[in-house]
Simulated scan of single mutants.
Amino acid sequence: MTAKGFFISFEGIDGSGKSTQARLLAEHLRAKGREVVLTREPGGSPGAEEIRALVLQGDPDRWSARTEILLFTAARRDHLERTIQPALDAGKVVICDRFADSTRMYQGLSRGDLRGIVDDLHRLMIGIEPDLTILIDMDPGEGLSRALSRNGVEERFEDFGEELQQAMRKGFLDLAAEFPARFVTIDGARAVEAVAADVARIVDDRIAG
């Protein structure tokens, strides 16, 4: 438990369905009378949303990995100050589509051995982890096809291709093994409703506990 609220993050490769599952969980908890803040990273506050446009659009080589780490950490700090911590202090459930684990993977692992830098900055500038992280596991090829089919403008990381998604899947599974008390891994290659039912059951049990 963080402060008086409960902090849940969703992680997974691009196209894994985590954004849909975050939204469905928010609807489930609100129907049970919980106060819920549904948010996302990068973003979730006005300043962080401006940084989101910088890091998710444009050429894949627009930023170095080290520059990205600084940008994502700045966005996360603003998000924490303006959205996450006030909601937790008010006793709300915060559901976040991605958090620091994505930076540990996308910048700290895939684009160089920079995990230590990510973790050091996180300790200095952020200082909290989710109470529960739900990893939606998905075949990288299928996930990338889903992500690219959206035809959106925020496709900078999808443009790195399937090799990155393969590395990310392995990295997320390794993180789940590293932090077993915080992570729960769910098979995302099923019907949306089946995944949502598992997520709801896990969260209900964890919050009640």
Rank of each mutant, 00 (worst) to 15 (best):
G112P: 06
V118C: 10
S149H: 09
T67R: 07
R115V: 15
R123G: 13
V36H: 02
A31F: 03
M105A: 15
P46G: 02
L132F: 10
R34N: 11
W63F: 15
A75L: 04
A176S: 14
E163I: 01
R146L: 05
T2F: 15
R82I: 10
K170W: 13
H79N: 10
E11C: 09
T67D: 08
P140W: 01
D204N: 03
F10Y: 04
Q21V: 04
G33A: 02
E154R: 12
R23D: 10
A90C: 11
S45D: 08
E158M: 00
S45N: 09
D120P: 06
D205N: 13
G5T: 06
D131I: 12
G152C: 02
G152H: 02
A197E: 09
C96L: 08
D139Y: 07
Q166R: 15
S149W: 11
L54Y: 03
F7A: 07
A194I: 02
V118T: 09
F7L: 07
K18E: 03
G152T: 12
D119L: 14
D174K: 13
P46S: 03
A181F: 11
G43C: 01
E50S: 06
G143H: 05
R40W: 09
F157I: 12
I117R: 05
N151L: 10
G188M: 02
V55A: 01
S19A: 09
A176W: 10
R104W: 10
S19Y: 05
G44M: 06
A26Y: 01
G141H: 05
A65V: 03
W63E: 08
I95L: 01
P46W: 00
A200Y: 01
I8P: 05
S149R: 11
E50T: 08
L38N: 11
I51V: 07
F160P: 00
